[in-house]
Design a protein around this nucleic acid. Structure first.
Length: 304
DNA sequence: TAAATTAACCGCCAAA
DNA sequence: TATTTGGCGGTTAATT
């Protein structure tokens, strides 16, 4: 995201906004657990000069948590950097370095409980794609890290540029100010294979289907009463609310990057009628679908 | 915009 | 006996 933003800025004659440097315990090739390799530009010990945005990546980084020298370096770097961020389980390094105490933060959905348990001083938000607290920004799983990066680009270079980058990378730009957004996909993933089986996943993949409590209960093999109760326990929202949020979420995406007629959007998102979509959309976002789309068109036109 | 209809939700109690 | 599940009915909110 930062590289793409830099390319676009240079094309537009704007001074170079970012220089990306990859650092690791040692300079040179770093073999990832997946088998892919990265080439680190430098060892972290050798980094000189100011850091603008420190990004602590996740993955296997937890094996580094007892490296006192690294933690000290992170602390020092964070003190001087304009902002400090983490992706995925990178939050654990920030936490171990003490940078998250008393702050709000998040991490990959599979690790939020552990983060909370190990560091009670952190206010963990398991539902956020990313959380900004002062100069510290933490994000959930990998793609949420890209959402965070886009938000930072937006803060630095403006919404038009962020939109341009998002489009180029086929990403979805969040609303301004929209941190801590509900993501039906995230919530469904986090619910995993609980007592509800695959129902949450199924919902987000079949928004056009009949998603009444009765139908969903049948799918889960429970009575409607019990299903509703278990659903709230597992997901933290009532079934209808969850479905509604998921539909609004999908409609938003469709409106943002598509030429799809409103009626088709309403159909694919499962609203059935335009009227229903209009009302629901407005209730959630305080904008009517057509106006929402227009706003995006205007923003895109501004970038050429 | 107003009124009627319908769906969801929730507390409570009983059965499993 | 304790916990989970299912059903009933009243209340609220959304839809037509």
């Amino acid at each position: 995201v930062f590289s793409a933003a830099t390319e676009r800025a240079l094309d537009a004659g704007v001074p170079r906004p970012y220089t990306v440097t990859v650092v690791a315990p040692r300079a040179g090739r770093v073999r990832m657990r997946s088998g892919l390799s990265l080439v680190a530009d430098a060892a972290w010990r050798d980094v000189r000069g100011p850091i603008d945005t420190l990004v602590v990546a996740g993955g296997d980084c937890r094996s580094l948590m007892d490296d006192r020298a690294l933690l000290a370096w992170i602390r020092r770097a964070a003190r001087h950097a304009r902002r400090t961020t983490s992706v995925c389980t990178g939050a654990f390094l920030l936490a171990e370095a003490g940078l998250l105490d008393g702050r709000r933060a998040t991490t990959h959905w599979g690790w939020t409980d552990e983060l909370r348990r190990r560091y009670p001083a952190i206010n963990v938000d398991p539902d956020a794609l990313f959380v900004s607290d002062g100069a510290i920004h933490t994000s959930a799983g990998v793609t949420a890290g890209m959402d965070l990066a886009l938000a930072l680009v937006e803060a630095d270079l403006g919404r038009a540029m962020a939109l341009d980058v998002a489009r180029g990378l086929v990403l979805f730009l969040k609303r301004p100010g929209g941190q801590s957004q509900f993501s039906a996909h995230l919530a469904a993933q986090r619910a995993g294979r609980g007592p509800l089986g695959d129902v949450p996943e199924w919902i987000v993949q079949h928004l056009e289907a009949d998603l009444s409590v009765e139908a969903l209960a049948a799918r889960a093999g429970m009575s409607p009463r019990n299903f509703a109760r278990v659903f709230v326990r597992e997901l933290g929202v009532t079934p209808a609310k969850f479905v509604e949020r998921a539909r609004v979420e999908l409609a938003r995406r469709a409106l943002e990057d598509g030429e799809l007629p409103l009626a088709s959007v309403a159909a694919t998102a499962g609203f059935g009628t335009l009227e229903r979509m209009r009302r629901t959309f407005h209730r959630h976002l305080r904008v009517v679908p057509q106006a929402y789309r227009n706003r995006f068109k205007a923003a895109l036109a501004a970038t050429g």
